[in-house]
Every structure is written in C-alpha cells, then in structure tokens.
C-alpha cells in the first residue's frame, strides 16, 4: 500500500536533490534544473495532499497551475542565464560576484 508517507519521502528526496543542485552546482543551468526539481517536489506534495480535497480537487488544480508557472519561470530563467552569459562570458556562479561588498 502506498501511503501518504511514501509520497512525502519521495518528495523530500527530490527536494533535497534539487537543493543540493542549487547550492553546489557550478553551472547555472544546473541550478535552474535544481530549482525545477524543488518546484516539482512541491507539486508532488500538492498532488499527494490533494486526496483531502475531493470536492474541488484543489491540490490537482494548484499543481497544474504551478506547472504552468514553473514553465514560465524556466523560460525567464533561461533568458536571464543567456544574458548573463553574454555579459560575463560564463555561467559559473562562482565567477559572477558583482554583488560582493
């Protein structure tokens, strides 16, 4: 029997992988991927908790909404990365430190 706990565990694993990618990867694209993973972990949770809202399917609806938003965000994110690349000739975040004090 696959219980809610299983979903949550899988979701947590995906989130952790995404978090790791965001924090550790030396490639901005990979960070973007990590972000996507984290969003998807959240979506998975929406779907999983959707079983408590059987009347309106709020979980599923919100998951779909989030997927659409995530797609849009990825598009914007990639555009930024492209511009960053044009400007800095690199997409390694370690080399981009204009924000330093």
């Amino acid at each position: 029997m696959i219980t809610l706990t299983h979903f949550l565990v899988v979701s947590a694993c995906i989130f952790s992988i995404g978090l790791y990618a965001v924090l550790a990867k030396r490639n901005t694209i990979m960070i973007l991927v990590g972000i996507e993973l984290m969003i998807n972990a959240a979506i998975l949770n929406f779907v999983a908790f959707g079983k408590y809202d059987k009347i309106n399917y709020g979980g599923q609806v919100f998951a779909l909404f989030a997927i659409v938003l995530a797609a849009a965000a990825v598009a914007v994110g990639l555009a930024i990365i492209l511009n960053v690349y044009r400007h800095f000739k690199t997409i390694n975040p370690e080399n981009i430190h204009e924000l330093k004090d």
Partner: peptide, 17 residues
C-alpha cells in the same frame, strides 16, 4: 558579518536557507 556578502549567489541562497 561582512563575510556573508561574498557575491556568491549560491552562498546567499544557502544563507537564506
């Protein structure tokens, strides 16, 4: 405190986390 402000995007994220 200023070491936080190292300009590394990921460090900011990690710190926020």
């Amino acid at each position: 405190v200023r070491h936080v402000q190292n300009g590394q995007l990921q460090a900011y994220l990690g710190f926020a986390l």
